[in-house]
């Protein structure tokens, strides 16, 4: 696995193998060992064309715990208006000796463009491209689900997952749908019709406009962040009406199965898609997701930077 651009790049077994590796890394780093020498001498560049302190810090922590050197590049859309700068920036950093790019970009497909264009040779991990995908988020979410619904499970069949919110514009939803389906989970996406993507029928998931309908049947409720700008584009009238229909408030929280877990990729809009009571409840695994993010990203970095097997057989 040189690049991780989309969950589609992974087979079921590869995805499971990443989750297994992460599980071992978690045990390995749970005690006194905070730092492993695995990526010593390798340089990871966080190439962020969009603000996301959390994701950047998570990748940075992951890389550093594997002893990689980390350099950070941040530029917001305004200062880098033209797409050409993706090419220039990546080439410039590569000239400084980067082995792997962690790319966050507001344009869907930016990671694919960088990987396919031949502009650079370094490995590429997609850390969120526009409204397309965010594969490491999906991996950490599945890692978290796996821990709570049967450690070591390679098959998520029977696990009912609801993804609630702005499905149409969510890279988190796209990657999660692809991965959860690959692992065999039963996925329902829930949103007002304006925020359900066109052609949802081809996604192989159920969709619903009604959050309350099957509320008590879900094992996992994954709430998505709502962008308030969507109101201006008339996707929904206002925050109150959205929260009433699709927010995880206390009353809905109480109607969940006791074993159900509540997830959110962060940052949260408390009081909009999720109430404070739900976010801070015993069923919430939101902070665990953050911790697992570092572990899973360590596994992904390790998997990406492992080279081809040219060593002779017979032990070393």
């Amino acid at each position: 696995m040189k690049n991780l651009l989309s969950i589609n790049d992974l087979s079921h077994d590869e995805a499971i193998s990443i989750l297994d590796t992460a599980a071992e890394l978690q045990k390995l780093t749970a005690g006194t060992v905070k730092k492993l020498p695995t990526l010593r001498g390798r340089t990871v560049a966080n190439l962020f064309f969009e603000d996301s302190t959390r994701t950047r810090l998570s990748f940075e922590a992951a890389a550093k715990r594997l002893s990689a050197d980390v350099i950070n590049f941040s530029a917001k859309g305004s200062s880098v208006s033209k797409g050409e700068s993706l090419k220039d920036t990546a080439q410039t950093l590569e000239a400084m000796g980067v082995d792997l790019f962690v790319l966050r970009h507001p344009a869907s497909g930016a990671a694919t463009s960088l990987a396919e264009s031949g502009w650079v040779h370094a490995h590429i991990i997609n850390a969120g491209d526009g409204t397309h995908e965010h594969p490491t988020q999906a991996l950490l979410d599945s890692f978290t689900i796996r821990k709570h619904h049967g450690i070591g499970r390679n098959d998520f069949s029977g696990v009912k997952v609801a993804i609630v919110g702005d499905i149409a514009h969510s890279r988190v939803a796209r990657s999660n749908v692809l991965l959860l389906k690959k692992l065999g989970a039963d996925v329902t996406v829930i949103a007002p019709p304006t925020l359900i993507p066109h052609g949802i029928e081809s996604w192989g998931v159920q969709h619903s406009y009604d959050f309350d309908e099957d509320l008590a049947s879900f094992d996992v409720v994954m709430m998505l962040r709502v962008q308030l700008e969507r109101m201006n584009d008339a996707y929904f009238p206002n925050g109150r009406e959205y929260a009433r229909g699709y927010g995880l408030d206390e009353s809905r929280l109480h109607r969940l199965k006791k074993s159900a877990i509540v997830m959110h990729p962060g940052p949260m809009n408390r009081g909009l898609e999720i109430s404070s009571a739900s976010a801070d409840s015993a069923q919430s695994v939101i902070l665990e997701q953050v911790a697992n993010g570092v572990i899973v990203r360590m596994a992904v970095l390790y998997r990406s930077l492992g080279g081809p097997d040219i060593a002779s057989a017979g032990g070393l």
Binding site: S108, P197, G199, S202, W203
Partner: peptide, 19 residues
Amino acid sequence: TIGAQMNEGSVASELGLAG
């Protein structure tokens, strides 16, 4: 067609490009 990038449909939805 504000911000539209490609034909609205299942391919656009998958690719996350505005329809």
